[in-house]
């Protein structure tokens, strides 16, 4: 429950009512927290697995704002180096982005063959080509992936459940659009630019 008053159960005449226990002071706001912890077994992690700082992005490959945030994340990674691990989770807004699910499946299919991050980067660098699966396929082959397996897994929607699980985990974490970032588990409500993200990350060290 983002930014709301503290809620406790109170029994009144046999009914359980949810009542605020205290009034929220003006200006005090607590951003929502990541509901699904980062796990190396499941998550796509770039950087040192045990880095002190964790940046999680819920993103949509077709979203122009995510496209704009992509080089910003690269800057953050460059600046913070081994202090940072970056995690990407799927949040395809399929009702407004017709190619978002296919693109997410493409990255997951590359992940199955150990090439998640090159494909993730390629998709963001070629957002305009998302409607044409042959572009990603050609890149997959260039990466040395088994093209037949890659295509088959996408066509069979093998990774759709995982993508939908990512999405629901995001919803429960208070993802409110794409991209949504979490800095050491707390939603970053500032701008999706390197400066703001770095400031936010550095603040958690204090």
């Amino acid at each position: 429950m983002s930014g709301t008053t503290t809620v406790a159960r109170k029994r009144t005449k046999g009914k359980t009512l949810l009542e605020p226990t205290s009034k929220e002071p003006a200006g005090k706001y607590e951003a929502p927290r990541l509901a699904v912890p980062v796990t190396p077994e499941r998550d796509h992690i770039e950087g040192a697995l045990k880095a002190a700082l964790t940046l999680v992005e819920y993103g949509d490959y077709q979203c122009p704002y995510c496209g704009a945030a992509y080089p910003e994340v690269k800057k953050v990674q460059k600046e913070l180096g081994s202090e940072l691990r970056f995690v990407f989770r799927n949040f395809p807004l399929t009702n407004i982005h017709e190619h978002a699910m296919n693109a997410a499946e493409t990255a997951e299919a590359a992940s199955a063959q150990g090439k998640f991050w090159p494909m993730h980067d390629f998709l963001y660098e070629h957002q305009a080509t998302l409607g044409d699966p042959s572009v990603a396929l050609a890149y997959a082959k260039k990466l040395g992936l088994d093209g037949q397996k890659f295509e088959r897994e996408i066509a069979q929607h093998l990774y759709q459940k995982r993508i939908k699980d990512d999405f629901m985990g995001g919803v429960r974490s208070g993802v409110n659009g794409t991209p949504t970032f979490y800095v050491n588990g707390v939603r970053h409500d500032g701008d999706a630019i390197a400066k703001a993200l770095i400031e936010s990350l550095n603040q958690t060290k204090k």
Partner: peptide, 27 residues
């Protein structure tokens, strides 16, 4: 059973609603 007002310009997402609906079910 639950109300929430977002700070200016902050989109609240759906997590609060889902938690409130769960609490409603439990109650």
């Amino acid at each position: 059973r639950w109300s929430h007002l977002s700070p200016d310009g902050i989109n609240p997402g759906a997590d609060g609603i889902l938690s409130a609906l769960e609490n409603l079910n439990k109650a």
